[in-house]
Computed example of a mutant assay.
Amino acid sequence: MNKLNGGIPEEIVPEVLEIASRNYANNSQAYSASELIQAGSEAQIPAEFIQQAIQEVRSRKIRQQKQRRVLAIVGASVLAISAIWSIWTYNSFSRHASVVQAKWAQVENQLQRRADLIPNLVRVTQAYTEHEKEIVSLLQQSRQAYLQADTPEQKVAAVEEVNDAINHFQDYAANNSQLQSGQLFTNLQYEIAGTENRIAVERMRYNQAVQQYNQTIQQFPNSVLAQGLGFEIQPFFQAATTEP
């Protein structure tokens, strides 16, 4: 009681008065069973029917409360399950996306390895002839295009230029017996062949990872969540490699 007799903060006074008024209204509008029976007798309704009606109404209210509790529990369960599913699915998307990125990094390593062979091809070409400026220029430009590419799409396009330049070099070397007899050229042929094999393997692994990722985000209902979270279909690496 001492707490009630203490000062009431001004900021809670409106809320206190509102709640008190509501409680008073609810209490003043309540009727006792005897009052209802009396009202029923005035309407010539027997008391037992009034009692029965009171019991039915109370039972219905209890059932409604139970139904609301069940619905609340079901709703909370659905929300919890949806949240768990969303988190699990997001983690799955992220995991597959990370695998795709890792596999692409391996592809890039091998593409970079091949691009780094071009200066050696240029040196071999220049060592045996001073008249193949076109091949030298083509090799140098293709390597520069690859080094300037940033996105996977740009790198795939630049790879085509590297392939074309190396193919021109291979055609030139096939008709130059003096060049073919050199040890440096022979070593480069082994390097080119080995790099092409590594690229083929890493490209296959990358495409497998992309396929798994794309299938995961395209399946319903994953596709709905993927679209909302910004996970997009990734392209396959279809660039053709050169023939060693």
Rank of each mutant, 00 (worst) to 15 (best):
A47K: 03
V13P: 04
V107D: 00
S82C: 11
I19F: 09
I84M: 08
K133S: 15
A157G: 01
L139P: 00
E191Y: 08
N120Y: 02
Q141W: 03
P244A: 06
Q140C: 06
G182A: 15
V156N: 07
E160T: 13
I45M: 06
V224K: 08
Q141K: 12
W88L: 13
L188H: 03
A145Y: 02
Q112C: 09
I37Q: 01
S223V: 08
E134W: 07
E56L: 12
N214I: 06
G40H: 00
L111W: 04
N187I: 05
L117P: 01
Q219G: 04
M204T: 15
L17Q: 15
L4A: 10
Y31E: 13
D116S: 07
A239C: 05
L138I: 13
L79R: 04
A33Y: 02
V100I: 06
A239V: 05
E202R: 13
E130V: 14
A115G: 04
A30T: 10
N163L: 09
A47G: 05
P9K: 08
A226M: 00
A105F: 03
Q211E: 11
V57K: 11
Y206Q: 06
P152Y: 01
A209H: 01
E232Q: 10
A149N: 01
A193T: 12
S181T: 11
R123D: 15
W104S: 06
P235C: 04
P152G: 06
I62L: 09
Y90W: 07
Q101Y: 07
A97S: 14
A20C: 03
A80F: 10
E35S: 02
Y31F: 11
E196S: 12
A165Y: 00
S21T: 11
R114D: 03
A209I: 02
F236G: 09
